[in-house]
């Protein structure tokens, strides 16, 4: 299949950036990233700069691949990362726009690669459970209702790829932060530091320059791991508690 790619080329954060058109011949079995690999091989052979993009596991669990394909983070297929998106979902002769995530807190490093360390700094402020010593205790000694464990596991599916931020017209990271908070706060081990964690992570999220949620819901639709808006509702409740609760 013959494709026309309009790929965003940008040489560093201070460069203005522009779309450049490339013709590429792919086949339907290729993943989107493999198709880009083919393009990059050709560019290298022609002694041109290859297109820079993030990728790692290529099996949908690391959250590294991060581009916006035809206006959608991770492309047109729901609940799928770019690495798991196959070319059979495109047609011969298609023109495909490929851009980096656009958000203030995710500055472009080069071409399609953006700096997502803002997420790491949010995690550093509270995305952990403070058990500093001893071995892990027997899991069966910690009683937890199955329904709660499921909710936590649903939130834990977040791979921190940042598609929610990229899809949000407000550049907000509420779905990501709420996923991390629900993952930890709902479990008995994480419940101890629930309010403190909520306060710290949201505070860091704001300092990183992410926007405010207006419940548009594009994040939920574009999330490759199907993280639900209900996580944000729960996060808001914890945040209200953390803001208004006294020490007693």
């Amino acid at each position: 299949m013959k494709l026309t790619l309009k790929i965003w080329r940008q040489n560093g954060a201070n460069d203005k950036g522009h779309f450049k058109s490339y013709d590429v011949v792919a086949n339907e079995e290729m993943s989107f990233l493999e198709m880009l690999d083919v393009l990059n091989e050709e560019l290298i052979n022609r002694k041109e700069e290859p297109v820079v993009f993030d990728h790692d596991c290529r099996e949908g669990i690391c959250g590294a691949c991060s581009m916006v394909i035809n206006g959608k983070p991770h492309g047109p297929l729901r609940k799928t990362t770019t690495c798991q998106l196959h070319m059979r979902h495109f047609k011969d002769g298609d023109t495909i726009h490929v851009e980096p995530y656009r958000a203030k807190a995710f500055p472009v490093i080069k071409d399609l690669m953006v700096d997502r360390t803002a997420f790491d700094r949010v995690i550093q402020t509270g995305g952990y459970i403070s058990v500093n010593t001893g071995g892990a205790q027997d899991a069966n000694n910690i009683p937890i209702a199955q329904s709660i464990a499921e909710k936590s596991m649903d939130a834990a599916a977040c791979i921190g790829c940042g598609a929610c931020v990229a899809a949000c017209p407000n550049g907000a990271a509420m779905l990501f932060v709420s996923a991390k908070l629900n993952h930890l706060n709902l479990l008995p081990q994480g419940e101890v530091e629930k309010l403190e964690r909520t306060h710290k992570m949201i505070d860091r999220m704001e300092k990183e320059g992410f926007g405010a949620c207006s419940n548009i819901g594009a994040c939920e639709v574009e999330c490759p791991k199907d993280i639900q808006l209900i996580n944000i509702a729960r996060m808001n409740r914890w945040y209200f508690s953390s803001a208004f609760a006294g020490d007693q």
């Binding site: 959608k72 726009h97 899809a167 550049g171 907000a172 819901g217």
Partner: peptide, 20 residues
């Protein structure tokens, strides 16, 4: 204005089916 500041810029293709 806060949210406009947080958004990095417009995409070339605007997705229409992910929100009302």
């Amino acid at each position: 204005f806060k949210n406009r500041h947080s958004k990095g810029g417009k995409y070339a293709v605007i997705a229409k089916d992910n929100a009302t």
